[in-house]
Each structure stands twice: as structure tokens, then as C-alpha cells.
Design a protein around this nucleic acid. Sequence first.
DNA 1: GTCTATAAGCTGATAGAC
DNA 2: GTCTATCAGCTTATAGAC
Lengths: 215, 215
Amino acid sequence: MSTNTIQKPRDKHFTTILLAAQEEFATHGLKGARMQAIADRAGLPKANVHYYFQNKVSLYLAVLDNIIATWDDFFNDVSVNDDPATALDTFIREKVRLSFENPTASRLFANEILQGAPYLSDYMRETLRPWVNNRAKVIQQWIDAGKMTATEPVLLIFMIWATTQHYADFQVQVLGILNQKEYDASLIKQISDFTSQTILRGCGLEPPNTDATGN
Amino acid sequence: MSTNTIQKPRDKHFTTILLAAQEEFATHGLKGARMQAIADRAGLPKANVHYYFQNKVSLYLAVLDNIIATWDDFFNDVSVNDDPATALDTFIREKVRLSFENPTASRLFANEILQGAPYLSDYMRETLRPWVNNRAKVIQQWIDAGKMTATEPVLLIFMIWATTQHYADFQVQVLGILNQKEYDASLIKQISDFTSQTILRGCGLEPPNTDATGN
DNA sequence: GTCTATAAGCTGATAGAC
DNA sequence: GTCTATCAGCTTATAGAC
């Protein structure tokens, strides 16, 4: 009973607080977030939050770590031999899906960057930059192999990020303009199709059939 | 001397504070911004800020008003009779230019939306939504006239916003990945060309020649 | 582990001299 | 109009009972 009751999430409250903090930080940023508001979102007294996390910054770092750890990227395993249309289509659709599934994570990331990325500069230099350069190389190889129109691979990645994350970060604006209360399945489908088709055509690629495959 | 010395900007300090506040609010949002930090950016004592602006919220509203007033939109005067490729190319390039010229305004706007647009809901409903619907109608007329491929006009506008504003809002990330200290003219040209060409091709339009026009 | 109460310091805003 | 000094209230963080 001593060794086999170890749980990775130290406590259910640990996770609860982490999620509550993610929402608060995503909305107001590090400086704007209030420990009391995080406690309220978690439905716990403020002192309880401090029991699990030493202070505001360490809680913020824990949230950032947690997000980056689950920051799946469906463009990792792509290589020259893959079909660029299929690979880019999958990448774009997965990014759109993530935006709707976990908008808070995207917003928190956006807030951190807006504030100058004070706590993510290491991650950007050591992880994100190499990742982008590596993926850009694959796109360049597709271009060199005549599989797609010449373009700027890194700017293409920026465009995919910007377009897909827009629906998470600017959700309030998008819904306000569309005069809708929330995203529904048909809108998400429409956005996925539009984004993939437009960007793929922009790269001189023929978008895969979307109706038959169902995605 | 009594009537003809009226100046619209009540004072040079008025403008100085407004700009300092714009930077602080753009970086940290309303809650995260500090009046002391605004005063420091303006190079004035904190009490001086309160002399010109009653409180934090009214200063924030003044900054928002100031931004929206100068929020030129180069897609206003477009009509069915215009060439969609030229009109969209101009719109995209002007949005890119604004992103590099006044990134702070874009970032402030982004921060307000991330926080749920508490002070811009009226503007979004009464000004922005009608504007988008109106411009979407023109795009739809181009499609109906066979001037461009069928697409979703509103989503196209979102895509242009997202792609162009990305370079202002995520400047730190973009420069970090490109391993550059700041945006230079050749990079801006490259981004303008890429963004316009990719989106126009994505709409089934032939991008205008960019080298000759020097745009 | 949980929670109330409170200390210590920060922040918005103002009073009042110049 | 400008600026120093300062107050009142908010915010982080902890002490200590349970």
C-alpha cells in the first residue's frame, strides 16, 4: 500500500487548480490574473491553491508546461515521401480541431507571446525554432521534387498557425460577427474545409476530396 | 488670442500618455496594466497621468477610441465593378503594412478580444459586424459574376485578418523563429508578396505582378 | 489536507504644496 | 499644470487552528 498507490496527478485538486488557472491566465495574462479568481474558478479557498503551488509564477509555469506537454503536432512524422496535399490537409484540420477543442490553451499561448514571451523564450529557441526549420525543410523538399508550387515554407507554417488559431484566440469576435452563441459542428466543418482548400490551392495543390472521406 | 489658440490635443502630454498607455495595455491588458508603468513609459509622475485621465478604465477607453478612429480600412470603397484580384491584393498589402507600422494597436485589440471584448462588444455589434457583412456581399457578387472561385466571403475576411495581424500580435515568436532582431524591409516585402499571392491563388485569382509595380 | 484570519506589500487614486 | 506625499483598498502569501 505504500508504493503502489502513487498517483501521477498528486490529487484531483491539483488538476482542478491547473485547469482553473489555465482559464484565468488565458483570459487575463500573468499580471492580470488574480489568485482569488483562480480559487473561485476551482471552487476552493485561496489558501488551498497556495498549498499546491508555491506562488503565482510557479503556478503559471506549471500551466505552461502542462500545455506544451500536450501540444500534439500532427505534422511531426511527415517526410518527403508523403503527399504534400494529404499531409498539409491533415495538419490544417488537426490544428483547426485543436482550436475548437482546447481554445484556452491557444489563448494562454497568445497571451504569453503578446506579453513578449518572457517565460517561453527558451522553449521558442530550443524547441519551436528547430521544429519549424525542420518541417520547413520537408516542404522545401516537396517543392524541389516538383510536388508543389514554390513558396516560402516558414511563412506557410505561420499562415497555417495564424489562420487556425484565430478561431480560438478571437472566438468572441468570430462568434459576434457570425451572430452565433457558440461554434456548432457544421460551422467547424465549413471552417476546416475552407481553410484547408484555400491554403492548399494557394500552394498550387489540389485539395483532397472532403465529402467522401468525411474529414 | 482667446479663441484661436484652441488645440485639439489638449496638451502634448495628453498624446504622450495615450501612446504610453497604448503600449502598456497592448502588452498586459486592462487588468495587467499598471498606472505606474504607464507613467514611467511616458516619463511623467503617476499623478500627472491622473490629471489627464480620471481613472484606469477611462484611460483604457480613450486608447481604444483613439485606435478605432485611426483604424483605416482599405477595403471600404470596393464595389462589384472592381477587379477582385487588385482589390484583395491592395487590402492584404495594406493590412500587412499596418501590422508592421502600428503593431501596438493590433496587439491591444488582440488583448481586448482575448479578455472577452468587454469594452468592444458595442463596437463589434454596431460597426464591425455590419462592415464585414457588407464587404462579404461584394465578394459574393464577384463570385456570382464569375470573377472568382466560389468561397466563403466572411471566412476569407477572417483569414486575411488572421494572417496579416499575426505579424503584429506574434512578432516576438516570428522574430524568434526567424532568428532576427527586427523586421527589415526585405522581409516585409517577402511577407506581403507571399500572403497576397497565396490567398489570391487560394481564391482562384491570378496575383497581380508585384515586381513591376514596386508595391 | 483544508480553511479562516491576517500580515506585508502593492496599486489606484487623491490631497495639497508649488 | 506639475509633482511629492500619502491614504484606502486590493492582492499575494502565510500562519496556525482543525
